[in-house]
């Protein structure tokens, strides 16, 4: 459809999104593609028609008063821009993908409500039922219980059920865009499962992805931090032994000829870096599947 629109509006059509631009009407498709149409080139009827098919960014801005940071993120993630939207001191990031079945009526207050649960959250609205929360400088370990409580709180105020998918801990670099795009795709494909569970972590959902969406299973999907950690041979061997010994730290330490505290130290290092606590069953199950996926390349 975008191609047809480009053909129809020809010169008045653009995809190079400029947040501060006032000459174009900027629209967003459901899968996050942004395009602009010269205001002078379209009629009111055409505008209204396009509004029903796409999200007019102007509308969301009026509703949620998009900040410059939000717009920069939007541009970075959804258009061709390679300008980093984050400040230099931000090293890692986590994406939270959320959706509801009914419109979230008041985006400004929604953003206000979630503030306390995240470190510097930035909310990007794909539409009034679907959004992404970007948490800059997140804590390594994500507290799912707290998030479920927040979801219930939001439900009691906004009277909508929030379905969430919590992404991996990502390094801030040029690969982030690709990682985001793949994670977002996972969210879309896992939606029926997420609707049952309400809140699902990437690691919990990984086995499901292996069954339902094999085309998404790629090393590229894994966070850089995880890839880097698994490329460390000592860490990889430690994790393999720990899994082999059924998550029994004492036996694994014995097998590795190290003190239990040394093993604990390695785990802490791994958790801090990747956000994956291998002592938790769901995380360990994820690692048991991710390690062969990773080592396939190394071998």
């Amino acid at each position: 459809m975008i191609k047809k629109l480009a053909d129809y509006f020809h010169m008045a059509f653009t995809t190079d999104f400029i947040p501060e631009d006032t000459e174009n009407y900027w629209f967003q498709t459901e899968d996050g593609q942004t395009f602009g149409l010269l205001k002078t080139a379209i009629t009111e009827v055409e505008l209204n028609l396009l509004r029903t098919l796409f999200i007019l960014i102007e509308d969301t801005e009026t509703n949620s008063k998009n900040t410059i940071v939000q717009l920069k993120w939007q541009q970075f993630l959804f258009s061709h821009s390679n300008d980093f939207p984050f400040s230099e001191d931000v090293e890692s990031i986590r994406f939270f993908y959320f959706q509801s079945k009914q419109p979230i009526a008041d985006p400004i207050n929604f953003e206000e409500a979630i503030k306390g649960a995240f470190q510097q959250p930035i909310v990007l609205w794909i539409n009034n039922m679907y959004g992404i929360i970007i948490e800059e400088k997140p804590q390594s370990i994500f507290d799912k219980e707290e998030f479920i409580q927040l979801s219930d709180t939001l439900t009691s105020d906004f009277l909508v059920v929030i379905y969430s998918f919590i992404g991996q801990l990502h390094k801030v670099d040029m690969l982030l865009k690709e990682k985001f795009s793949m994670e977002k795709q996972c969210f879309q494909e896992l939606l029926p499962y997420i609707e049952q569970e309400k809140t699902v972590l990437f690691y919990e959902a990984f086995p499901k992805l292996l069954i339902t969406s094999t085309h998404l299973i790629d090393q590229k999907l894994l966070s850089y931090y995880l890839i880097e950690s698994l490329q460390d041979e000592e860490m990889l061997h430690t994790l393999k032994v720990f899994l082999q010994y059924n998550l029994n730290a004492s036996l694994a330490a014995k097998r590795l000829h190290i003190h239990r505290n040394s093993l604990q130290y390695r785990f802490d290092k791994f958790i801090n870096k990747t956000g994956i606590d291998c002592r938790e069953f769901s995380n360990a199950a994820f690692l048991a599947l991710a390690i062969p996926l990773m080592t396939k390349r190394i071998e």
């Binding site: 009526a105 008041d106 207050n109 409500a113 503030k115 306390g116 649960a117 479920i148 409580q149 927040l150 219930d152 709180t153 439900t155 009691s156 105020d157 906004f158 009277l159």
Partner: peptide
């Protein structure tokens, strides 16, 4: 109006703000 099993409060808001939030909406 709904009350859930969880304490369902916003951690960054005071008791007053928590109670007022739904009305503000």
């Amino acid at each position: 109006a709904m009350v859930f099993q969880n304490y369902a409060l916003y951690p960054h808001m005071s008791v007053y703000e928590n109670m007022a939030f739904g009305l503000k909406l």
